[in-house]
Structure formats: structure tokens, C-alpha cells
């Protein structure tokens, strides 16, 4: 398992996983920021294009990912928490 880091990693950093890759981020980091440290994209569009966050404020829905098995979460509006499992670009697993 590879490991990536986001900026300002302190001793208090939070560890979560993005598509199975362990990521460490500073407290207060959004899930969107964590995802972008692993991959450039968050979702696949309906015609198959890779997409990544656009608005950063919860209105464009480009940053949607699965979090702990729940699909369609806006990763820019949710803060990372320890042990979170984030999945990108997949078909929605049925809740």
C-alpha cells in the first residue's frame, strides 16, 4: 500500500483511505483535497469523462465520491475523519 501526504502534515494528522490508498491529511482538510492528493479525478461523468472538483462550495456536484459505502457525497463539503473509506469514479454501490 502506497502512502501519500497532503500539506501541513502535523503530528495530529488524520489517516483515511482513498480507493484503498492510505492518505494522511491535516485536521480540517476536506475529503476533496484528500482525493486530489491521490488522483486528479473524483467521478466519471455520464458519458465517461473523468471529472474533478469545480466550484469548491457544494453546488456543482463534480466532487461526488462514495464515503464509507454511501454514494454521491460532495467531498468538498465534508471534512476528513480518521478511518474514512473514500471511493471515486465507481458505479454507485446500492445503499
Amino acid at each position: 500500500m502506497t502512502e501519500r501526504t497532503a500539506q501541513d502534515i502535523s503530528i495530529n494528522s488524520i489517516e483515511l483511505s482513498v480507493d484503498g490508498v492510505r492518505v494522511r491529511v491535516a485536521p480540517g482538510a476536506t475529503v476533496a483535497a484528500a482525493v486530489l492528493t491521490v488522483d486528479a479525478r473524483t467521478r466519471t461523468s455520464v458519458s465517461g469523462e473523468p471529472r474533478a472538483p469545480l466550484c469548491g462550495m457544494g453546488i456543482c456536484f463534480e466532487c461526488q465520491v462514495g464515503i464509507d459505502g454511501v454514494p454521491y457525497q460532495r467531498s468538498c463539503q465534508i471534512l476528513c475523519s480518521p478511518g474514512m473509506r473514500v471511493t471515486t469514479c465507481g458505479e454507485p454501490s446500492l445503499p
Partner: peptide, 13 residues
Amino acid sequence: GGLDAMVRGGLPI
């Protein structure tokens, strides 16, 4: 504003 928000949310720039 989107990139600004992402950076404030922890995106390394």
C-alpha cells in the same frame, strides 16, 4: 473561488 476553496481545504498548491 473554487481553487481557492480547495486550497483552504488542504489541497497542496
